[in-house]
């Protein structure tokens, strides 16, 4: 296709992506090096019948004027990145110097909002992704073994946890694990502890979110692997059988190598999706014990006081994280591309 025709075909789509994905990133960079204007204070003299007092008042007019003139705020360079709510290198340095052992250092790090969110986000990403692959594969193998006539309805039911809105899915589970909900009271009964609440303990909250993550994403891995199982080369399986390969050996040497590219695909998609974990934190009302990077951006932007600078700095750090996460894939794709061309 000549350049000209290509240009006109791709233009609308490229324009949409440039204006609403690339440009906002520029806007985020700009915002992250600025800070909101402080309220302009002015001295006001109020005279009563006996004496005059001067006091500081917020000059609403001047504040509005200043915000109008410079909507981005005041330029402060990388200060936002380095303050206590973000990378906090200063604090980390002192904590490292005054550490009383590795674990107390980690605990101190965990008290900083950014590192707390990072800890949960990374844990969620790297625990949920492998579990999803394993569970998805197991379901695919099991479904592949049941009678053909039942498979359609099994796939239908399996799709539900994935297709349902993440916020809704997490709410549905959240209500069930409520201390007065069905699972919550069942757990209380099992452990014989009427005060046990999944919501109160940070550890159990993490587990709950991880379980939700696996429940939500396993169907995706299942469907991909199930489709892969349908295309396993039958000749190879047959010849392996004639050569006397056991069931396990056939899975190990024929089926798994056939599915390997699918595992890469599922892992890639899952890493991207799990890294942005957000809705479950809102749905499970878990922000007290588990926050994610997406959630702290949301928290900065939501509510009365909108902290654009702070949110933008966290956004930049998150985007950086995504790039690091994708780096192996990008390098590999580039190498393959260079070989082909």
């Amino acid at each position: 296709m000549p350049h000209r025709a290509f240009f006109w075909f791709i233009l609308p789509s490229a324009l949409a992506m440039l204006l609403f994905i690339a440009l906002p990133i520029v806007s985020v960079i700009l915002q992250s090096v600025h800070i909101e204007h402080p309220k302009v204070m002015s001295e006001v003299e109020t005279c009563g019948p006996f004496n005059c007092t001067t006091e500081m008042r917020v000059d609403a007019e001047a504040t509005a004027e200043l915000r109008q003139a410079q909507p981005l705020g005041k330029y402060i360079g990388l200060e936002t990145y380095l303050n206590r709510n973000h990378l906090a290198f200063e604090v980390v340095k002192t904590q490292w110097q005054e550490r009383e052992g590795f674990f107390s250092f980690i605990r101190g790090l965990y008290n900083l909002p950014f590192y707390k969110a990072l800890a949960f986000t990374l844990t969620y990403t790297f625990v949920v992704t492998p579990l999803v692959i394993v569970l998805g594969f197991s379901i695919a193998v099991a479904v592949n073994a049941i009678p053909r006539i039942m498979r359609g309805s099994v796939i239908f039911v399996s799709l539900l946890p994935m297709i349902v809105t993440p916020l809704i899915g997490s709410l549905v589970l959240f209500w069930m694990v409520d201390a007065n909900g069905v699972i919550g009271s069942a757990i209380q009964h099992i452990f014989n502890d009427p005060n046990l609440s999944l919501k109160a303990s940070p550890f159990l909250t993490w587990i709950m979110l991880l379980v939700y993550g696996v429940w939500h994403s396993a169907p995706f891995a299942f469907v991909v692997f199930y489709a892969g199982l349908q295309t396993v080369p039958q000749d190879t399986l047959e010849s392996a059988m004639i050569d006397g390969a056991s069931r396990w050996e056939r899975i190990r040497y024929v089926v798994l190598p056939h599915l390997a590219p699918l595992v890469t695909f599922v892992a890639l998609i899952q890493l991207m999706d799990n890294f942005r974990v957000f809705e479950p934190v809102v749905g499970f009302n878990a922000s007290a014990s588990a926050t994610s990077l997406s959630w702290i951006i949301y928290n900065d932007l939501f509510g009365q006081q909108q902290l654009f600078g702070s949110a933008a700095a966290t956004s930049m750090l998150t985007i950086l994280g995504v790039c690091i996460l994708l780096m192996p894939v990008l390098v590999r794709t580039w190498r393959q591309y260079k070989v082909v061309h």
Binding site: M17, P24, F278, I297, A312, L326
Partner: peptide, 26 residues
């Protein structure tokens, strides 16, 4: 075309909320 597809893949990985913080002020 390769680069456009790779750019699209990176954009696909971007958490949506990071973009929101770029939208609000404009």
């Amino acid at each position: 075309t390769f680069w456009i597809l790779i750019a699209a893949l990176v954009f696909r990985a971007m958490p949506h909320i990071t973009l929101v913080s770029g939208y609000l002020l404009p």
